[in-house]
Design a protein around this nucleic acid. Structure first.
Lengths: 194, 194
DNA sequence: CGTCTATTTGAATGTACTCAAAAGCGGTGG
DNA sequence: CCACCGCTTTTGAGTACATTCAAATAGACG
């Protein structure tokens, strides 16, 4: 498996020498997932963080009424996992599965700890990563508070136009927090407006 | 101003020697805010991150219809600011003001950069901080997707019982994403149930 | 005390959901 | 390669959750 994408992603934030790169790569494990395969299911402990080389994953919960709610999508160059379960080693409430055939690189809890110890620059790398993720989530929260479903859909397709292409409406609805039926109605309404 | 609270907060995640502590403290600036005073208003650039020693702040937007939406509260031992504006040095979309008389310690962009350079352990500190903030936000997003207003209110008061005491219903409503009128109705309903 | 803001209450409205049925689409096997 | 099965999307009617508007009451603060 080819880690070029991951290395260039890291190179954007910190500079590593060849030794550090070698160490880092030795701590990773590749994995491929067929469409619809699960990476994590509710009740399991999340043992690794996953970097996506190719494909598309979704992180979601299933509520008491059986409805799916997507907390995040992951595509190329994104990290996914359940951080809470990963850090506390407690059972997760999330499911993660593949919407497309997907290739990932995994780093386990022990290996990540080792990485932080041996290459402290990675503290900086993940600090920046979480910082950016925090900002993105805060914007999503603010949007959910301020906007109607129609505005949120509008924003979603302008913010992630290429992602929307890859998803079914059902997935988009589960991310926006509305029913697929209602999303269908919104789309119909939009056609007239344009 | 007394930085004990901040130092013990930091000590939970990283260990500093006396020199490092001295350097860190030299990079901070104290500030007091009277109730209703603004720390940041829409259009300004956020020049510092703020650690709360005492008091209560709110971070919020005002939407096109003039409604306030609170993205986070800050009380003792929390950091607040607009990270996006802080990092990109672009105008913020948020307001931050004090709900109580408040004492904070500020660290400017330049001083934080200096801190990262001179005491890399702070990369780790903020990595952990953002990591935890990310988890908390993800839980909030998941809740907003899954739950009705009534459940969200229930969860809020069990999760932050002491915070709710300090807030008006209007503030709680603006955080939950509902109108004060509707929150009042929910509270009335709850009284019967108990 | 008086003013200003927050909260409560009630009626009408709107946004989004439920249920149900039909149509569309994609993958799989014969 | 077509036919069928299952899942997604569309459409419509009725419903529920939450808002708007308005007015009255309560509370906070100077």
């Amino acid at each position: 498996m080819d880690a070029t994408l991951l290395l260039s992603h890291i190179d954007r934030h910190i500079q590593l020498d060849t030794e550090e790169i070698a160490l880092f790569l030795s701590l990773l494990q590749p994995k491929t997932l067929k469409r619809k395969a699960f990476l994590l299911t509710q009740g399991e402990i999340c043992h690794a963080e996953h970097f996506i080389l190719k494909g598309c994953l979704r992180v979601y919960t299933i509520d008491d009424n059986g409805f799916e709610h997507i907390v995040m999508f992951g595509v190329e160059e994104w990290w996914v996992g359940d951080l809470y379960s990963f850090l506390t080693q407690t059972p997760t409430q999330y499911f993660i599965d593949a919407l497309e055939d997907t290739e990932i690189l995994q780093i386990s809890r022990q290996n990540l700890d080792k990485l932080y110890q041996q290459v402290p620059k990675f503290e900086r790398f993940f600090r920046i990563l979480f910082q950016n993720a925090f900002i993105a989530q805060q914007q999503r929260i603010q949007q959910n508070l301020s906007n109607t479903a129609e505005m949120r859909y509008q924003d979603f397709i302008t913010r992630y136009p290429q992602l929307e292409q890859r998803l079914s409406q059902k997935q988009v609805a589960a991310y926006l927090g509305i029913t697929p039926v209602f999303l269908s109605m919104l789309r119909k309404k939009r056609q007239f407006k344009k």
